[in-house]
Design a protein around this nucleic acid. Structure first.
Lengths: 243, 243
DNA sequence: ACCTGAACACCGTTCAAGT
DNA sequence: ACCTGAACACCGTTCAAGT
């Protein structure tokens, strides 16, 4: 649908040995002026676009990820991007799939089910907590457009099956865990004073007392306490479905 | 910080009896032309803006919620909105707080803890599944700016305390449940074929088999199966913390 | 096929001017 | 205090022209 599936692995025309793997025809941004017309060597590809987008995000955040800024960092005109992606959403999809490959599924098949789920969920949350603007895209994304995401699901599904999960419950269990992971990824970015009721504190005494009691425990990352609490409940509850 | 707290309940100057409650000075959009300068009766307030935004969203979706469209539906110039809200994000905050008041917390204090949590969580998910663009805002929103949201938390916290929850775990448990609810709200909007691997199906046999087995059960809303599975696990696991 | 450059139809937001 | 109207600095995207 979005036309982003083809991996575009085509032979590079005499690749310069010192070039970064994702840099194709190259020309460092804004060095020499390219004249109009098709260039002799292709300048862009989806890999390079993805890498440049990640660099831009890590430097300027998602607010800095505009098609214009992305094009500039690649040394092309904004319109050139549309030869390789169909829209900005398509760029987000490329990012999502790249990140999915960084989620740790290695423990499925080598470690007990609960250990593997725990590793996977923490890793999944950590990766996407730095990329929450992708969550609305992922949560609704047909997997057919994201091969690495699909590979992640395959590893997790196999782990669940081998652990004795009834096959007709596996997808639902994964969806439930993912929902928790995505919500928790937002929570990581919440400001410290998110639960400070301010001047309304005396109108919500139970809430304020509970917030204070948690604060008194002095956890470095209270978001991790909540994540652990919920994840362990899910692991215990879902694990009981195994037979 | 955003200055949206004051409820602005000021006496209406001779309210027309047939006017909608949130309509203030009124003039149905685009009827008579208002000349520049301060109008005799105020035209806007935060309540009216919230109501108009909700109508706009239900008619055109969140893509249709622009400051220009919102202003037009209220019969004012876009810049007039900025006398009542500090930004578009501020409008989203008003919406969020309005919706928080629609979440059902009535069972806390009248029904057993697990029943109350179940009702709350389903209701919370249902309300926000139609408003997922608010989730990134909520998840990171200081509660001091959202009095109705705060009231919801107070009711839930009291319910947890009365059910014997250790006070220092209540907030973490609520945060965990909320993370799940927010993630699940996205899932409600996922397309039916989200898990269709398409041409890659034979590369992910375990996944495809699991997807097919779930589909074979023919649930009207598979998202509800996942939500129920996860929620019951959370209720059981978190409920075990009571003493 | 794959670039450039110009253009389009929006966005959210600011601010002087008016009453 | 609270409107209008004009303006600003962006956005993502399209498309003809060039090689």
């Amino acid at each position: 649908m979005l036309g982003t599936m083809a991996a575009e692995r085509l032979p590079m025309p005499a690749p310069t040995p010192d070039a970064a793997p994702s840099t194709v025809g190259a020309a460092p941004a804004g060095k020499t002026r390219r004249r109009a017309g098709r260039p002799v060597a292709r300048v862009l590809d989806q890999n390079g676009i993805t890498t440049a987008a990640l660099e831009l995000i890590s430097a300027k955040g998602y607010d800095g990820l505009t098609m214009a800024a992305l094009a500039k960092s690649l040394g092309v005109a904004p319109s050139a991007l549309y030869n390789h992606v169909s829209s900005k959403d398509d760029v987000l999809l490329l990012l999502e799939d790249h990140l999915a490959a960084m989620v740790d599924v290695s423990a499925f098949g080598t470690e007990p089910w609960d250990v593997a789920v725990r590793k996977w969920a923490w890793s999944y949350r950590d990766v996407f907590s730095k990329h929450t603007p992708l969550i609305p895209v992922i949560a609704v994304l047909p997997v057919a457009n994201a091969p690495k995401t699909l590979a992640m699901y395959e590893a997790v599904t196999a782990g669940f099956r081998d652990a004795g999960f009834p096959e007709e419950r596996i997808i639902s269990a994964i969806v439930a865990l993912e929902a928790f992971v995505f919500g928790a990824a937002y929570d990581v970015n919440a400001p410290e004073d998110i639960f400070d009721a301010g001047s309304l504190a005396d109108q919500v005494p139970n809430f304020t007392a509970a917030v204070d009691r948690l604060a008194a425990e002095g956890h470095a990352m209270p978001t991790n306490v909540a994540f652990s609490l919920g994840l362990e409940a899910l692991i215990a509850g879902l694990g009981a479905l195994r037979q």
